[in-house]
Design a protein around this nucleic acid. Structure first.
Length: 503
DNA sequence: CTAGGGGCCGAAACCCTGTA
DNA sequence: TACAGGGTTTCGGCCCCTAG
């Protein structure tokens, strides 16, 4: 590929594929002007596709590119790189969800073979109620706009409406990875791109950046169990509209759902977890017996009782009022005993599907856990802090679930950093944030029998630090060692790069 | 092979409820 | 109001898996 030519990237996150619509990054159009319709998409296998370009809600979009999407079995997580040749011609490079460029010639066969191989397992794991919800969700979006849900609706009209809907609702179909933007992924930029949750990179291939290069490196290892789970998640999120079946009582009572989510009629499970967690931390009172009895009866009766709820469903469902122990630290969610009859097996794995492709929870038996960030997510997060520099020694950490209360509150510090810059005998370090507030947190170096050493920050004050600074999974912290004299405790200045708008 | 990340277990500390 | 008992939470340590 020619790095001198203008280009932009797109990561597909579901709906865009189904709607046959792909929006050009605004910055790209701003920089290179209008693209005349139709555009030609040239792929490395020699195929060329003509795709119409139209304005949708003020944005320039490729419409009806379904044939192209189908030809290469594009799905959620695929990464497209568009290199502009001029004269409405783009060369397109396609990367699969593992960030590996696909083999164009035999991609379809491979995809089909893989599909076939996994079909039993995967299809079985995708419960029919999910498919049903997806279908109904799609209908809901259409009918919400006052248009009848006719199967024969012209695809484009449907796409238009959905596109408008999603723009209004601030929903996101594609993350635009790309571009010059990654130099400026800060909160102001995020505000600018809020409606698409997107990052735009112009004139910079992902390969240009070290971390992106990491992401795109061809992965040679076998698929692990966790990888398989991720693929299952992707499959489910392909269909884009999976909802939490019912509102939790707390949600409806306290109204702490984000307004944009209310508009959309969807829940972001991670946000729910965070919100619930906050509530739990603030009101960490154990349920009394009478409370529990009340909750249990509500849970069990939810099948009936929620019929009047706008989220009611014909499928079996239940409502759970979060207990502190459901969220933190045990992540054990107790199901109503009456609901067990709907499960095919009393033990085993279940998958919780949400609207947000990333926030799939895999549950094993009674235990649910948030999956750790993928290397790609980490690399993307780290880009927010890539411009950080300091004369002091520092290290950057992307917050993982395990650092923020999953299992326990502990943050691992790179061993190399500790060896080079810190006194292992110390048992405290001081964290200081920009407003000058400080926390004494426990520091220890855990010696593992294999001889390995695992320096870590832990304890109540680390938790207080995380709470006070509203740290969430995906946020980046830069720990800058500004004082490490032998007498006192090491002092770290902590700069935080939040993963979403604060909060 | 090493380091990072996360799960699990058991002990101790903490908190709440019920009862005298 | 004090206390016992039991449930919940916190924490240290160990182990395993994965990526580089």
């Amino acid at each position: 590929m020619d790095s001198q030519k203008p280009h932009f990237c797109k990561i597909l996150l579901g709906l865009g594929i189904h709607l046959s619509i792909l929006r050009f990054p605004r910055n790209f159009i701003r920089k290179h002007g209008e693209i005349a319709s139709p555009v030609q998409l040239k792929v490395a296998d020699g195929c060329t596709f003509r795709v119409e370009v139209k304005r949708k809600g003020g944005e320039l979009c490729m419409v009806n590119w379904r044939q192209f999407a189908e030809q290469y079995s594009l799905k959620h997580g695929h990464f497209l790189l568009f290199e502009y040749q001029g004269g409405s011609i783009f060369r397109v490079f396609i990367f699969d969800p593992s960030a590996t460029e696909i083999e164009y010639g035999n991609y379809n066969q491979e995809a089909e073979a893989e599909e076939e191989e996994n079909s039993g397992e995967r299809l079985n794991q995708k419960p029919t109620f999910v498919q049903d919800r997806i279908r109904r969700s799609m209908q809901h979006i259409e009918t919400e706009h006052g248009k009848p849900n006719k199967e024969n609706d012209q695809e484009e009209n449907s796409a238009d409406r959905l596109n408008e809907t999603n723009q209004e609702a601030g929903d996101s179909q594609s993350v635009e990875m790309g571009v010059e933007g990654l130099n400026h992924i800060n909160q102001e930029e995020e505000a600018d791109h809020e409606d698409y949750d997107s990052v735009e990179i112009l004139n910079q291939t992902p390969r240009d950046s070290k971390s992106e290069n990491k992401c795109l490196r061809r992965s040679k290892r076998r698929k692990t169990a966790s990888d398989k789970n991720k693929y299952v998640s992707e499959d489910v999120s392909d269909n884009d509209s999976v909802e939490i079946l019912n509102q939790t009582p707390r949600e409806s009572k306290m109204g702490n759902k984000r307004p944009e989510d209310q508009e959309r009629g969807v829940n972001a499970s991670a946000e729910m977890l965070r919100t619930e967690k906050k509530c739990c931390l603030l009101q960490k009172r154990r349920k009394t017996t009478s409370d529990k009895n009340k909750t249990d009866s509500e849970d069990v009766s939810s099948d009936e009782g929620d019929k009047g709820n706008s989220n009611s469903t014909d499928n079996p469902s239940f409502v759970v009022e979060m207990q502190p122990s459901y969220i933190d630290p045990g992540y054990k969610l107790i199901l109503p005993i009456d609901f067990i009859k709907y499960l095919p097996n009393k033990t085993g794995n279940v998958t919780l599907c949400t609207m947000d492709g990333r926030n799939i929870l895999k549950c094993n038996g009674s235990c649910c856990s948030m999956l750790p960030l993928t290397s790609h997510e980490k690399a993307t997060a780290l880009l927010r802090a890539k411009d950080f520099g300091s004369d002091y020694p520092y290290f950057k950490v992307v917050m993982q679930p395990a650092y923020l209360g999953r299992g326990r509150w502990r943050l691992y510090i790179p061993n190399k950093f500790v060896k080079e810059n810190m006194d292992k005998e110390k048992n405290k370090v001081i964290l200081q944030v920009s407003d000058g507030k400080t926390w004494d947190v426990d520091f220890s170096v855990l010696a593992v029998p294999s001889g390995q050493q695992k320096p870590q920050i832990s304890g109540k004050n680390w938790r207080k630090f995380a709470d006070h600074n509203k740290l969430h999974v995906g946020d980046v912290c830069v720990f800058e060692l500004i004082d490490h004299t032998n007498e006192g405790d090491s002092i770290f200045k902590v700069s935080i790069f939040y993963s979403s708008k604060v909060k």
